[in-house]
Design a binder for these strands. Sequence first.
DNA 1: AATCATTTTTAGATTAGCTTAAAAATTTAT
DNA 2: ATAAATTTTTAAGCTAATCTAAAAATGATT
Lengths: 220, 220
Amino acid sequence: MEISHTEENYLKAIFKISERDGKPASTNAISSEMSTSAASVTDMIKRLSDKTLIHYERYRGVTLTGQGAQIATHLIRKHRLWEVFLVDKLHFSWDEVHEIAEQLEHIKSQGLVERLDEYLGFPKFDPHGDPIPDADGNFAIRKQVLLSELKHSERGLVVGVQDHSTAFLQYLDRMALVLGTPVEVLEYFEYDESMRVLISGEREQVLSKKVCQNLFIQKR
Amino acid sequence: MEISHTEENYLKAIFKISERDGKPASTNAISSEMSTSAASVTDMIKRLSDKTLIHYERYRGVTLTGQGAQIATHLIRKHRLWEVFLVDKLHFSWDEVHEIAEQLEHIKSQGLVERLDEYLGFPKFDPHGDPIPDADGNFAIRKQVLLSELKHSERGLVVGVQDHSTAFLQYLDRMALVLGTPVEVLEYFEYDESMRVLISGEREQVLSKKVCQNLFIQKR
DNA sequence: AATCATTTTTAGATTAGCTTAAAAATTTAT
DNA sequence: ATAAATTTTTAAGCTAATCTAAAAATGATT
C-alpha cells in the first residue's frame, strides 16, 4: 500500500497530538497542528480510515491503529537519527536541523535507516534530548524533571528541551546550557518564579520561569 | 519560485537527453525517459516554459535555459554526493544506491550539500566513476576510453561505467572489476569482438563485446 | 428543554500531474 | 508532390490535496 508524504505527515501529527493531550486527536487539533483547514482534515481522515491507518468516530476524534502507529514511530525514528547525523557528522547546530530532518524522514529504503543507526553508533537520544525509538518502535525512558521542579541545592544534568523553538535553542547556546551541562539550583525567587543557577560549577545565572519550565534535567 | 519534485525530475531528464543526443530533447524522448505519456510532457513543457526554465519551439524540442541548467546540474551534484555518502560511509554497494540518491537529491537546504561535500572530502567522482559537478556546475573532465577501444597490450585502470544497470554492476563485482582495477588487453578476438584481459596483473578473463563497450578505462 | 456557541462535515471549486483518444502538424517515402 | 507514417498537441476527464462558505451536529448555558 502506497502512503504519500502528506499522509505520513498527518499520521505524525495525530501521534504527536494524542501523546501530548492523552486523548484522541480532534479534527481541529489536527488542522491547527498541520496549518490546514478543518475541511481538509475531514477529507484526509476518510482516506486514512480507508487504509486502516486510523480509527475514527465522528465528533469523537482520531486514534492511530497499530499500523498507523508503526508508521508514525518509524518516521520519528528516521527524523531523530537524521538529526543526529546532521549535528554529529555535518556539524549543524541543534537549531538548524529540524526542517532538513523533516524532509529526510520521508526517504524510503529498506536498509538505509538501520545502516544510518549503526553508522551513528546506535544513539538513544537526538540532539535535543528526545528519545530515538528502536526498530521495533520502543522509546527509551529516562527519569527527567523540569528545572522548575528542582528544589534549592538540588543538582542535575541538562538532558533535553520541551520547547524546540529556534529562539529557545539559540538562547541556550548563548548561555552555554547545552545537553550534558551540570546545573545546581542556588536560589529560588518566589516573586517571579525565576532561579539563580550554578552552571557547569562555574558561572551563576538567573533563569526565568519560562526557561526553567522548558528545560529537562536528570537529577543526581 | 517554487519548483516541484516532479518539475525537477523533468529538468534532469531534459539535461540527460540533450547531453546524450547532442540536440534539443523531443517530447517523445522526454516521455520515454520519464516513463510517462507524451501528453503529460506537453503539459509540463508549458509549465516549465512559463517559469523560464526551458526554451521551447513547437516540434523542435526543448533546451534548458541558464536557470534550468543550473537546477539540473545542482541535482546531479546532490545525487552523486549522496551516492558517495551511501557507499563510503554507509557501505552500500554501488548497485544499491541509485534509487535512494534519486530521493535524496530533492532535499532542499542552503548549507546541506556543501557540508556533505566537505564531510566526504570533496570527491570529484561518484561510485560509478561519474564526475561530480562543483558548486558552480563545472564537471571535472578525465581522459577515458571504452575498453573496446584499447589495442593489444595496452594497459589502463577501470574508471567508470557507461551502463549503470544493476545487472552490469553486479557482474563487475563478481569479476572484481571495480573502479581502480588495473587491466591489460592480452588478446582481441575478431570473431565476436571479445577480449582476453589481464585483471589486476593476476587473473585472465575473456570479456564479451558488450562488457568491453560499457567499461571506461583511463589509459596509462 | 430551548438557545447559543463551537466543532465538524458537506458542497462546490481549484490546482498539479496524470491518463486515453482523437486531431493536427511535421517528416519520410513513394 | 502527394500519401503514409510519425510526432506532437488538444480535448476531456481522473485523483490527491487543497480551499471557502454554508449546513449540520454536538456541547454548553440558562
